[in-house]
Nucleic acid binder design. Sequence first.
DNA 1: CTTATTTATGCTCATATTGAGCATTACCTT
DNA 2: AAGGTAATGCTCAATATGAGCATAAATAAG
Lengths: 331, 331
Amino acid sequence: MSIKPRQAGIELGLHASIVSVDRNEPHVVCVTSPGNSKARDSLPFGVFTPLAHRTLEIGLRRWVEEQTGLSLGYVEQLYTFGDRGRHAREGDRGPHMVSIGYLALTLQTDIAKEHVRQRRWYDFFPWEDWRLGRPQIIDTTIEPLLLEWCKRKPDNDAHEHPLGRKERIRFLFGLNGVSWDEEKVLDRYELLYEAGLLEEALIDGRSAAKAWDTPCELGRPMNHDHRRILATAMSRMRGKLKYRPLVFELLPPEFTLYELQKVVEAISGTPLHKQNFRRLVEGGGFVEATGDMKKSTGGRPAKLFKFRRVALVERPSPGLRVKATTPPPNA
Amino acid sequence: MSIKPRQAGIELGLHASIVSVDRNEPHVVCVTSPGNSKARDSLPFGVFTPLAHRTLEIGLRRWVEEQTGLSLGYVEQLYTFGDRGRHAREGDRGPHMVSIGYLALTLQTDIAKEHVRQRRWYDFFPWEDWRLGRPQIIDTTIEPLLLEWCKRKPDNDAHEHPLGRKERIRFLFGLNGVSWDEEKVLDRYELLYEAGLLEEALIDGRSAAKAWDTPCELGRPMNHDHRRILATAMSRMRGKLKYRPLVFELLPPEFTLYELQKVVEAISGTPLHKQNFRRLVEGGGFVEATGDMKKSTGGRPAKLFKFRRVALVERPSPGLRVKATTPPPNA
DNA sequence: CTTATTTATGCTCATATTGAGCATTACCTT
DNA sequence: AAGGTAATGCTCAATATGAGCATAAATAAG
């Protein structure tokens, strides 16, 4: 087969961040490297073939099914990554790889395939789990390392970023009384990457000898930019949680309000006020009682609820910042 | 040059929805067909060439500059469209086209290129402009046509959509007391498309003879799926407006609060309460007074403001639905 | 059998955020 | 000087939110 040097073709990769929640712990489906326990994980992925796949999403579902045996429920496109050099390790031969990242949700928590497993989300982003309070790793490791990185460059270098390094750190990691914004997963990941604190940012592969079987200090790394794609998925999920009833895709058809709360907490990474959460969910019309009870709660039995599908469109996205006045504008 | 029949290659198109606001009217940059005034407009677009463009965004900027002479400010990736048959009109020959849609903002309102012009947003989506109250076209044209489409199929056919046609219409177009959600631009576009009410949905080109120089009843059509890309841009802008200070990219460095309000209204398509808007913007720390005044307001002179760049990260995204409790969780 | 423990659920209350509109101020035009 | 037009300041009622107390209904312990 003679392959002509052609106009640097493009190959479209489809990458899936498949999220599930098992016993209040969020997981993501990973593909491990056969035979090499030190190698990093990948997200399930495949190449889009227009002849075989009618749409991008169909292609993704096909690949995921083939690689993991999972058939996906909710699927949402996230972002298309196409920077040159994303796959530098593969060498400069071959077509340029552009990747489309997807967020997918599943109820399944058991996978029957070799080299496929569900890993805990927070192994990759240990600084994102605030359910038991501010994670230690921020104060013990992240903040000191970031402040050191700060010193290596004048603070007001606007070329790099409209904000100084110190300010970015302060706002993204909630220092000096700034409150934590759990949606900024991607921004935090990128800051850490920029500061050279993540394994993936070390281009020379210096760290290849390290065993990644145990979570490392600044989170378990992944192949290529897969951890960035995962961070994008996490940001999107946490954001969307607040105005679209995504969580229900992660719960069985019937559930108690507390189970629902625990899943929301798992995703958002923050603790919630039980009574207020209940008021919000019930008042919002998202659920309706089935009439049945769940006994094995450890205390008083809990009412079982199911998702009200109508709620999907019933209420306009809440959280509006600007709101229309009544018809006759006073402008 | 002998080109071998190869594995249906992929070409990546980069499409830009370039938005500006001129005299309180939002516009989008269009490329018109030379010599054919009946032909539809396109969005500026070009093919991504990995050898020439280091990143997707750089490629987009390059193409836009070449085609329109504009150098873009804010640019944001929207969505990647890849369905087979998107470009059916071009025949089945040639590589498969996958397109990445972008939203871009610019201050410029004058374009010095032939066959490039800025058209009013609402010419493409006349039902989206509620600034002067509910648009007539909804009651006179859209609702009757949609209800007719309703009758052509049983209402509870869940295969088509989890919601019945009637319910979708009701919620998307704000019938029967349901309030209008200005963010659902894309959903409305897709409903109209599905109902076959848009020119683009008529695959046989029956309407090719119509002159598109004047806005048509259900909005001015565009080539291929460009109007869908534009609808995506509009949805994104209206949504993002509420939690990111995007508007300032559409205003000169100094502006009055009323000018700011008018731009927000132009984008969101809804009228706002003047005093409350002022309270929101000033209280939110988005702007600071420059000390200067604008005289030619027609009444009392207005203070001039400028954007406070810090606000970008200072406040976590407002509009949170679920909010963390204080550290010791009562769960 | 009674009491402690545990979780579910109901309800209150102070505070903050909205939506709406009235009142006053400061310029311009006639 | 009077009237027109916006800008700006302020009030007020209606909700929404954050926090916590109180009660109910199960199980486990003694």
